[in-house]
Design a protein around this nucleic acid. Structure first.
Lengths: 134, 134
DNA sequence: CAGGATCCTTGTCGATACTG
DNA sequence: CAGTATCGACAAGGATCCTG
């Protein structure tokens, strides 16, 4: 670990190894994290609701992501000691900030999907010519 | 592979398995992809320049990412048959679009790093009390 | 310089089973 | 319901060598 990270180099340069942005990029650079935060943007959810919302996520990975997000101050965890117990997850101010960006990014991606698929098809067709296999 | 993906379900819902957004999220949800695109936002770069810019990336992974980005129409690859050969990578219109979002996201993250680290420290201190081990 | 082809070490994820 | 714990499978990533 870096007990005294050399933050004086270039603090706004995520391209250096010791830049703290790297660890935060890991937060976003997780296919599930983006979906979990995106789901919570629409409002607080309980564990199983979240699990159903983010289709395909395993309970283990969901727990992992929630803990990591909670650790970084993105997600608030509220336990209601009812029977059966219910735990509600919601975004903090911080989480909503990053959530806005993720939603914007997802919106952009969805709007430009056709172009990407077209580019992909063109690329594959080109590659398929020189390499007819597969 | 999906020859005929069921796009008619809910096209703007990335939470379903068969939503095409998932595959695109994979593009962004890669720690390296975000850095590569971010590097190219500032201008075209050659392979080795790119490799030096994105510190810590291996040549294999850089190639992989570039090919994937090229396939999706994000990156343009220009080969100049000089000696030694030089290959220049630049963003397409599409790539600049997603690049803007990534830069914005990174800017936000860098601006809020102190809050995240504070939250993290608080969380770790809290966890360290109940679990003095490690 | 730009990259293809290997091997091999990781971490990540999914499935299952069990607690409160 | 809301988790924790453990195991195994798989793929991403890193290191190295080699080509044009």
């Amino acid at each position: 670990m870096e007990t005294a990270p050399d933050l004086r180099r270039r603090q706004s340069d995520a391209y250096l190894r010791d830049c703290p942005s790297r660890e935060i990029l890991d937060l976003v650079a997780n296919r599930w994290t983006a979906l979990v935060v995106g789901a919570l943007v629409e409002g607080p959810l309980r564990f199983c609701q979240l699990r159903r919302r983010v289709e395909g996520i395993s309970q283990k990975v969901l727990t992992q992501n929630l803990r990591a997000l909670e650790r970084d101050g993105m997600v608030r965890r509220a336990v209601y000691p009812t029977t059966p117990p219910s735990v509600e997850y919601s975004l903090t101010e911080l989480g909503e900030g990053v959530g806005r960006h993720l939603v914007a990014l997802r919106g952009w991606v969805e709007a430009h999907l056709p172009q990407m698929h077209a580019a992909r098809a063109a690329y594959d067709a080109r590659a398929g010519q020189v390499e007819p296999e597969e």
